[in-house]
Amino acid sequence: MDSVILATGGYDHTIKLWQAASGTCTRTMQHADCQVNALRITPDRQLLASAGYQHIRMYDFVSNNPNPVINYEGVSKNVVEVGFHEEGKWMFTGGEDCSARIWDLRSRSNFQCQRIFQVSAPVTCVCLHPNQGELIVGDQSGVVHIWDLRTDHNEQLIPAGNNDSSIQSLDIDCQSQRLAAVNSLGTCYIWQLSNPSSGSLEVISAETTSPPSPPRVTKATPTHKMAAHGRYALHCVFSPDCKLLATTSADQTARIWDTTDFTLVRELGTSNQRWVWDAAFTLDSKYLLTASSDGAARLWNIDTGEVEREYSGHQKAITSLAFCDAGVATSSSPTSTTAPVTATE
């Protein structure tokens, strides 16, 4: 199987898989009855998860089955986000029913451990802290919640105060240094993250025997605020090398920001591109994939700002993409021996 996976989904009720390098559509799967809100590839690269109205569906990459193989249900409204623990132990979702959930994926486990986190407004985005122990949940009232999964303790960040903006997307860079959020006014907020205590690991391993000491979550200190877009911002994502931040927006562009001082590096747009809903970096942070309402996904060269590939085949707007790159074994990169995997919703 091709180890680079690109999947797109949107309002035409289909999910398409692409050969990312050539731009050809390799497979079309049916996403009956509703649009695709979010897509994500499981850590083992076997399944593709899609979030839709009241369902999370899983599609098989290996077979040619156009229908889902697993259907998770029991959520009353739109599911807007889906994601996985890095070892596939559990899945997290967020939805318009004002909750974020943890679905226990361990098979044959008698003790199912399902978790739910209720907030007061519809959840718009969820992001997993790279430490695998905290969920960052953004909601429509503009609040960012940091939820410690083990202790159930949570803390709130309210970046925009009391105005009517909703958090649209959240991301943490892979070094866990920064948290980025974009809202419906096109504003981007950056927080510096710091561990609750330097020796947090020892504390947790000690806690298996003794009851937990006062719960602590990752501390976030606001550092930057910028008007990233003039209109609704839709998505934000850090590059794998942590040097760039991409934001996408209803202003029909994606913008690339330098994370050292948050200055604009590049604006990615074409005359026929419309709302840009989703974006993902390649592993080397040289290219950006975007999904747009004009029914096309695009691969941009960040250095030149040119469209290198266009993926067209959807009949309506594309609202989500999932991309899974693979490392290449070269002598210069020791990390590639383990074929690091990044999956972006």
Binding site: N131, D241, L283, D284, G327, V328, P340
Partner: peptide, 15 residues
């Protein structure tokens, strides 16, 4: 995460 190396200069299969 303290032992995590920054994933820099990685090569991408797509690239």
């Amino acid at each position: 995460l303290s032992s995590m190396e920054p994933c820099q200069n990685q090569c991408s299969l797509l690239t």
